[in-house]
Nucleic acid binder design. Structure first.
Length: 374
DNA sequence: CCCCCCCC
């Protein structure tokens, strides 16, 4: 790329490259040969309102409101919807946001008007690498970079490594947005379909992830459920731009991944260690993992549910140093009863406790439960 | 926006 094109690219297409080159030639003549072509191009850019074409390219971690104009390269990690609003002068304004990252961190971009159209028209997608020139200011959640009429946001062929500031699972609270988190993949649910309010068909699925601080259920909507196709248990995965909501049924906080979220495999190392509850400490109404050995085996039974479908259940007992508990194994888990022997070491992970038959506490091992025979 | 902890 020659020097003129390089400077032209920082103009964000406000005039055509041919017109820009003509203006540069005029400028060289005007200056009676006192400046070189590059300087002339910078002067023309300045005349057009772009004042920072000579500025150094900096890293995201160094961007702060005191710097003002910044040039940097970054990869798009989230794209948000464009909103329109009415200006006091009666015109309609447009504003859109992107989250971008480089190898030092991530930052939010605010694109105005015709720059926001780049988002609206689908010209900017997650994963694109961009050259960015804009104005750093204190925004609504820390420093952000504004890109208006004289700002620049162009795709570049450079491949940019990214590092995202990520949360730990134990820090995730109801209502949080922009959640980036990594974890080990502990479980993948079946995909369910459902009817949306508008009559169209929706798809929903769940995964469970864990890190060294805990585990959390993740809900994936519509096409996001497909991101799990390439994944297998124990992979490390990362979530970019999820949001957290309390599940109405379980009252547990979950991460949701909708239109603007990303779920993908990563090479990062994440530690996860299951924590097991002593059987004596189990109280009703919670999810537990226990570790012990089989101390009783019941019969496999089929039964009809109220809705007419049939299901299977079997009961086993598990003991540890602190006590003994009955486990109801539902669905496919029920078949395990035929493979188990007394004293087989076993782990029951994420089973739900309740007061069962004779008001004794028991665990239900349903489709969210994993069972490991050691 | 969905699953919904079921048996004897």
């Amino acid at each position: 790329m020659d020097e003129i094109t390089e400077i032209y690219n920082k103009l964000g297409g406000i005039i055509s490259e041919d017109d820009f080159r003509k203006k540069v030639e005029e400028k060289v003549e005007q200056m009676s040969g006192l400046c070189d072509v590059k300087t002339a191009a910078m002067l023309v850019a300045h005349d057009l309102g772009v004042t920072d074409t000579a500025k150094e390219v900096i890293k995201i971690k160094d961007i702060n409101p005191e710097i003002g104009n910044v040039n940097f390269v970054a990869k798009v990690v989230s794209v948000f919807d464009v909103r329109e609003f009415n200006r006091n002068d009666g015109t309609i304004g447009k504003v859109g946001n992107l989250m971008v990252a480089d190898d030092t961190g991530s930052i939010r971009l605010t694109l105005w008007d015709e720059r926001a159209d780049l988002i609206k028209n689908g010209n900017i997608e997650v994963g694109d690498c961009m050259e960015i020139s804009g104005y750093a200011k204190d925004g609504y959640s820390g420093t952000e970079v504004n890109i208006g009429r004289y700002g620049v946001i162009n795709t570049t062929d450079q491949n940019i490594e990214i590092r995202l500031d990520s949360q730990k699972i134990s820090e995730i609270r109801d209502g949080m947005g922009d959640i980036n988190v990594s974890g080990k993949l502990l479980d993948i649910s079946d995909v369910r379909t459902f009817q949306k309010k508008d009559g169209s068909q929706g798809r929903v699925g769940n995964i469970l992830i864990g890190d060294e601080t805990g585990k959390i259920r993740v809900t994936l909507w519509d096409e996001k459920v497909d991101s799990t196709k390439e994944m297998k248990l124990d992979d490390t995965i990362e979530i970019i731009n999820g949001y957290a909501r309390t599940n109405n049924f379980s009252q547990q906080v979950e991460i949701q991944i909708g239109n603007h979220g990303v779920l993908r495999k990563t090479d990062a190392e994440v530690e996860y260690k299951e924590s097991f509850t002593p059987i004596a400490d189990i109280i009703p109404g919670e999810s537990y993992s226990i570790e012990g050995s089989v101390s009783g085996l019941g019969e496999l039974r089929e039964f009809d549910r109220d809705d007419g479908t049939t299901n299977m259940v079997s009961n086993i007992y598990v003991s540890d140093d602190t006590g003994r508990i009955r486990i109801a194994l539902w669905g496919d888990h029920a078949l395990l009863v035929d493979e188990l022997d007394i004293d087989t070491p076993i782990q029951i992970i994420d089973a739900y406790s309740k007061a069962g038959f004779n008001d004794e506490i028991e665990l239900s091992a349903g489709n969210r439960t994993r069972i490991t025979i050691m």
